[in-house]
Each structure stands twice: as structure tokens, then as C-alpha cells.
Design a protein around this nucleic acid. Structure first.
Lengths: 337, 337
DNA sequence: TTGTAAGCGTTATCAC
DNA sequence: GTGATAACGCTTACAA
């Protein structure tokens, strides 16, 4: 497979008849006599020199690696984030490391602790449940961290957040504006930040629309997945016949679609449906899904930019950036079929 | 942010009153006197010692990182692969690095060359166009490589491959068995390995079913995406009215679904539809999509296991593993609605 | 401008 | 079993 062992800087230096220091300078673009520069370049080229990442990191204390930790690789929202982050990271000359935490609080904390191995220059983390332990861990992390989500107020860390409470309220008001009066809500676990924020938005909009709160219209799925959504809607339909359902994310809405079909209800005629996240999936269902875009791609991009900047300037004050939700109207509620 | 600088092995050794060598041994689980073991453990715990990844790698020549390079992060097939690989990699005590090549041949080659920086112990790569340059690069790579795809015969590298030619033939035969006689084929770029294999399978099945080959029934999309599929089917419908379409992957099929709807054709009544890959998407469309499962998750898992084994035993003979396709029948062709 | 030499934090090879 | 000590491959003072 590999012949001999790879050439090192010493190999290059010897061949070019200069010291390793000079060779290093040339390869790092530090000003040198044009003649030595030429010789070193040629020597490096000749032996096919490539610097050793570990040695470089050990000495310079920069890994040129950035990590992204998310709850679930297979959720398209996070995939979209991965894409955005990858672009920024790459442009900054670094590599991207991915970590899927399965939304497990313990795993997230372990990962934060692991940063002390210093295999990475910084971390972007999206956490569904940001506990006090997270706050401490993030504030004392070995490398800069950017949070996508909602840390408690006062936690000193760069943060990018969506306004999903307002997004949820927008969704419900949209259903109301389309003449719906019995609006159900299918949520994910309410202990999570998204779960609680979206619930608040739902209740807020009910008040604004002068609709009465009715807890029988609220169903909580076991998690934010398609299967969770299908089961939750099946349970809901056993006791009520709502004319609209707002789902706390698109995956739940896809499950809802399938449960509604199984129950013989048409969308949007019998039941109007609105999801949240505006994932690729929402445009390809039938009917296409009205949903709230929380700007996942943009949030991820901003987070990555924040992190790159933070790595350059470790001591600047932490920043908080909010991204506004935007209703995307399709056929499942509001758009002509 | 970070207080002082992190404790090193020397810190621990001093506190435990032993040499760094002994400290290192303890922390690496090498047999030592129980008393020193205890002292070192306590000292490490007390100062919160975590080994430095770069130093460790520099000395031991193991990075405990594995890379996965794929054409497109946002394609659910690859996301599923990421999930499978992540599990194996993690179980082996390593981290996973992701790289999206955008299917660019040059980028793939550059990435292979980059391995010489040795920031990773091995690579799993899925390449749509495996050129001669790839063969050379892979055979001379600085670290072990596993290919998911179809390198030319004789390339000495661990390989996991699907049989998409047979899968395509199965799909077409299924359409024929369901009474369809004018079976169109929407392919992705034919210079790619999947493109050419699936085309062969399509033609093979036509012959087996005694259907006449008709090039007007074949349309090539610009790439393997939803938009590509939509446009291709729109063009196809301008000249022909097939009673069935086989799409070279699920994304193309989703686009097809949408173009068919726009043209007022019903699925499966007017046009039966079969996709390929069995992505999560295929189960949530309406109608749900009949598709061919090429075992992406399993292939990825096998590739990861192969790589982990290869890293342990660099000199064993390369292996070639094939995974069989499996038709998944849903409502878009063959299943009752 | 260039060379010498001192580390960066580990692991591995020796003697003891 | 344990402790010096020499690498690993590179960057960076400092001296020349």
C-alpha cells in the first residue's frame, strides 16, 4: 500500500540544502529570499511533501477542525444545517466533524467535556434541552462554543435562535384566518425547548383569535418523528374531529397526513394542516404542506460564521442573533390546489 | 473562558509522585503495581486530566478519526449511510469526519491526496464516477480506503457494492407484471456508474419481457434530484404517454410524481411509478412509492466494518462485498390503495 | 534573511 | 514494575 514513510520537512530541507526552519517558513508563506523560496518549493514538489496534521496542531495549537453536534443526523432539518455549516467551515479552511447525540443530555455533556482533548478548534451545538449543566459546561468549555437554540438568559455564549413561539402563533392564526375554529395541536415532548415554545405560541394564538383553550385538542407525541405524529393523530381522532391541526414540526405533520388518510379525512377540505421547519419534505407531500420556515439553513450559517469569528477573537463579548419565522403557504392550508 | 492551561501528563505524574512514563502506562491500561495505579488515577481525577489528541496522534500514529466522503449531504440516501457509519465508527472508539464532494471528480481526488496529512486513520468514499485516476489514488492512498460503489475490476481496494443493474431490471419486470406495456425510464447522467448500470438493467428487462426498445421512452435528467426528475418527466410527456415510469432514484421519482400531477395524470391508474433507493421519502409520498431497496444502510455499515478491520490488518487481501437489491411494493405500483 | 535549538504532550525503548 | 530519555514532525524565538 504505502511505500516507505512519508517525507517530512527534514526531507525537504535536506534536498533544498536549507534548514528545516527555512523550509517551514517558505511553506507557511513567510517572506524569504526568492532563491531559497524557489529551491524549497521545488524540493517539496519533488518529494510530494504534505505537512503532518498532528505535528502541526501540537505545535501551533490549531487543529483546523470544527465540530457540529446535533440531535439526529437523519432529520432533514439538521441535514440542511450540516450543508450550511460545511460551506462556511470549508471556506475558512477547516474540516467538519459531525456528532449525533440522539438528543441525549448525558451524551451532549460528555461531548462537551471531550473538547478538552482539543481535537477541534470550536463547536456548534444544537441542544433540545439546555440544562443548567449545559450552561456550566458551555461557559467553561475548552474551546469556543456556539449554541443553536435557547440557553437560559444570562449564559455567556454565542447564540443563534429561532423564534418558534412566534412561528407557532403565526401558524395557528393562519389556520384561523382560513376559517378553521377547532384547531388541534400535535406537539413533541414538552420538556424540550421547542416543545415548550411552540405550545406557548399555540396558546397565545388561541387567545388572540378568541378561541377557547381545549386541552382535548392537544396531543403530545413521543418524539418529533413521523411515527410519533401518526400515532398522536390517531389518538386525537378517537376523541375529537378537529377541522385543523398544527404540528410542531414537519415530520409530525407527515405522520399526521398519513393518519388522516387512514381515517378517510381529506386535507385540506376536512382538516387543514400546518407543519413547521419547511424541510425539503414539505414541498413533496400531497397535498404540499403549509409550514413555518424557521430559517434552519440561515441559522446554521450564522452560527458557523459566529464560531469562525470567535476563534479569531476569543475575548469579544458573546453575541445573540435571532432569526425570524416565515409562513410558507402551500395546499395543505391556504393555497389553491 | 478557559482558566490557566490544561493539565498535562507531567502535572499528573508530579502530583502522583511517579514518572510520566508510569502515568502514561496507567492511563493506557498497561499492567502496573496497584498502588501506583491508584495514585495516578486519583491524581488524574483531581486535576481533571484529559490527554491531548494531537500529541497522542503524533507519537502513536493513530488519530482515532475516520472520514466519510459522499457526493451530497442533503440526499437522504447518504444521510442514512452517515447514520450507519457513525454507529460503527463510534463503537470502535473513533470520531467521524464528513466531507461532501458535490460529486466533483477533482474534489474527490484532492480529498484523497489530502489523506497524506494523516488527520484520519481511514476513509470510506462513495464516488459516482470512479475514474482511472481514482483507482491510482485509492491504491496509493496514505491510509486505508473503502469504496462504496463500482471501481473497475482489478482495483485492489476493499469494496462494497449494490447490484443496481439487477435492481433496475426487477423494477421494470414488476411494472410489466402489473400489466404495463409502455414503460418509460427517467435516468440521471449516464456517465455515472449508477446511471449506466440502471440503464443496462432497464434494457435487459425490456428484452426479458419481450418489449421493444424505444429510445423516445428514455429521458435523462440533469442530475439525480427532484427538480431534475420533474423537468425530465415534463419533457417526456410532451412526446409520449407511457403507462409506467421507472425512475433511477427516489428523488427523480418525487419529481416525476409532481410533474404527473401537474399534467393531470393519476398514479398508479394512468401511470404506474417505481423509484429506487427506498429512502424515507418514498414511504411518505402520496401515493407511497414502490421502490427498489439497494441496502444503503447495510452497505454503509459493511463498509465501516471493513474499514475498521482493515485498519487493524493493513495487509490482508482486499475484499469485495455485494448487497442484493430488494423490491419494496407500495401503492404507486402493485399494492392496493 | 537564515540557521540553531527549544519545545508542543505523548508514547515507546531502554536500562535498572 | 518503574524511571530516564529519546523520539514523533513541526513552529518559533533567538542568535548569527
Amino acid at each position: 500500500m504505502q511505500e516507505a514513510s512519508s517525507p517530512t520537512l527534514a526531507t525537504v530541507a535536506k534536498l533544498a540544502n536549507v534548514s528545516v526552519a527555512s523550509a517551514s517558513r517558505v511553506l507557511n508563506g513567510i517572506k524569504t529570499n526568492p532563491e531559497t523560496l524557489q529551491r524549497v518549493r521545488e524540493a517539496a514538489e519533488a518529494v510530494g511533501y504534505v505537512p503532518n496534521a498532528a505535528a502541526r496542531t501540537l505545535r501551533s495549537r490549531r487543529t483546523r477542525q470544527i465540530a457540529f453536534a446535533m440531535p439526529d443526523v437523519s432529520n432533514p432539518v439538521y441535514t440542511e444545517m450540516v450543508g450550511s455549516i460545511a460551506r462556511v467551515v470549508r471556506a475558512s479552511g477547516s474540516r467538519l466533524i459531525l456528532h449525533s447525540t440522539d438528543g441525549d443530555v448525558g451524551d451532549e455533556l460528555a461531548f462537551l467535556a471531550d473538547l478538552r482533548q482539543r481535537y477541534v478548534d470550536g463547536l456548534i451545538i444544537v441542544s433540545l434541552e439546555f440544562t443548567d449543566a449545559h450552561a456550566t459546561a458551555v461557559e467553561n468549555a475548552a474551546v469556543p462554543v456556539v449554541v443553536i437554540g435557547r440557553p437560559e438568559k444570562g449564559v455567556k455564549v454565542d447564540t443563534v435562535r429561532a423564534n418558534s413561539r412566534r412561528g407557532a402563533a403565526d401558524a395557528v392564526r393562519h389556520l384561523h384566518a382560513n376559517g378553521r375554529r377547532e384547531i388541534a395541536f400535535v406537539n413533541g415532548p414538552e420538556r424540550t425547548a421547542p416543545g415548550s415554545a411552540r405550545k406557548l405560541g399555540y396558546l397565545e394564538a388561541l387567545r388572540a383569535c378568541k378561541l377557547e383553550r381545549d386541552d382535548e385538542l392537544v396531543e403530545v407525541a413521543s418524539d418529533f418523528t413521523i411515527d410519533g405524529g401518526r400515532d398522536a393523530v390517531a389518538r386525537l381522532l378517537e376523541r375529537r374531529a378537529p377541522d385543523a391541526i398544527f404540528c410542531a414540526n414537519d415530520l409530525l405533520a407527515l405522520g399526521a397526513l398519513s393518519a388522516l388518510r387512514a381515517a378517510g379525512r381529506t386535507v385540506p377540505e376536512d382538516v387543514a394542516l400546518v407543519g413547521m421547519d419547511n424541510t425539503t419534505l414539505s414541498a413533496v407531500t400531497w397535498p404540499p404542506l403549509t409550514t413555518v420556515d424557521l430559517g434552519s439553513g440561515e441559522r446554521a450559517r450564522l452560527a458557523a460564521e459566529l464560531l469562525v469569528a470567535r476563534i479569531e477573537h476569543p475575548n469579544r463579548r458573546p453575541r445573540l442573533i435571532g432569526v425570524d419565522p416565515k409562513l410558507v403557504v402551500r395546499e395543505s392550508c391556504g393555497a389553491a390546489a
